[in-house]
Each structure stands twice: as structure tokens, then as C-alpha cells.
Amino acid sequence: MKKHTIVALVQDRPGVLSRVVGLIRRRGFNIESLAVGHSETPGVSRMTIVVEWEDVEQVVKQLYRLIEVLKVSDVTNDPTVEREMALMKLHAPPAKRPEIVALTEVFDAKIVDVGANTMVIEMTGSPAKVQNFIDVIRPYGIREMMRTGRIAMVRGARGHTAEEYVESANGHAERVPVAN
């Protein structure tokens, strides 16, 4: 099964996350990561979902059945910028710190907290780079880790603004009367 990255524009209403997740759960797929937040347009959120899917096209179509879903794109094969952030609390006794500092510099990571025996590192980058850093740092002892899941944006002028979906909704669709 192939890993897919799906980007969805959704109306920011209560329950919308639950509806999207429910549709994926129904087929017993596991969500690898899911990131949601406001888009450039008030009232519209953008989701990035990473899952292993067999028939992604069918699921994308079914996502469209959800009333609050405005646009769904499978960007797996598109040129995208993908980013993820991880926070790691490391076991960092004073003797180990110089090595850790050196590694964070190599990876462009940031040290955001230092305690008596711990350090918190913020690492942002492509999912591969984040994973790479985690692999390298793991031997020092990761006490806690948190990852945001990836967010993805299509490069160049392509992609979809939230506005075009909100503004094109002029009133509502026609109602076709039933004849018999």
C-alpha cells in the first residue's frame, strides 16, 4: 500500500474533523498524521492527512460527500513543500551537551529549553529530515517526543485558495422539483 498525502479545505464548523476522520476509520485505515489549522480565509481550515490507502480516489470522492468539505486534493505525486515540526525532550547530562548542541547545529534545529538534566529541542523541516534528526539523536535518550504531523503545500501557482470556494458559493444550488 502506498502512502498518500491528502490536502483538504473544510469549513470550520464543530464536528468536521470527526466527520473526516470517521470516513477514513470506516474502512479501517490508520491515519499516520493529521494536521489542521486555519487557512488564509476566515471560517475555512486546511487539513493535511497522511495515510496508507489502496483506492485513494474513492475515498477522496466520499470526502466530497461531507457537506463541510470544500476541496480535496491528493498531492502525493505533486511537487510540494512539506514540513513537520517535532519537539523532543532529551536526557542531556552536562557531559553530553556539547555533542547534542553540535548535532542540533548541523540539522538547523533549535534548543528551546535547558534543564538540570534535560534539553528540549525544536526541529522543523521536511518529514525526512526530521526523521533523520530523530534517528541521530535517539541514542542520547529521548524522554518525550511530539510531532505535529506534516503539512504540505503545492509549489508554484497551482493549488487552491480557500477564497475561491467560499466566494463561488453564491446563495445555493438550484432545487430541481420532482415531477411525479
Partner: peptide, 12 residues
């Protein structure tokens, strides 16, 4: 009431 349903536009 003016319905605001940007994600629901059935195609007839």
C-alpha cells in the same frame, strides 16, 4: 435565511 453551503452544490 441565506444558506451558506460552499461545500454542497449538487450537480443536476
Amino acid at each position: 435565511i441565506k444558506l451558506d453551503l460552499p461545500g454542497y452544490k449538487p450537480n443536476y
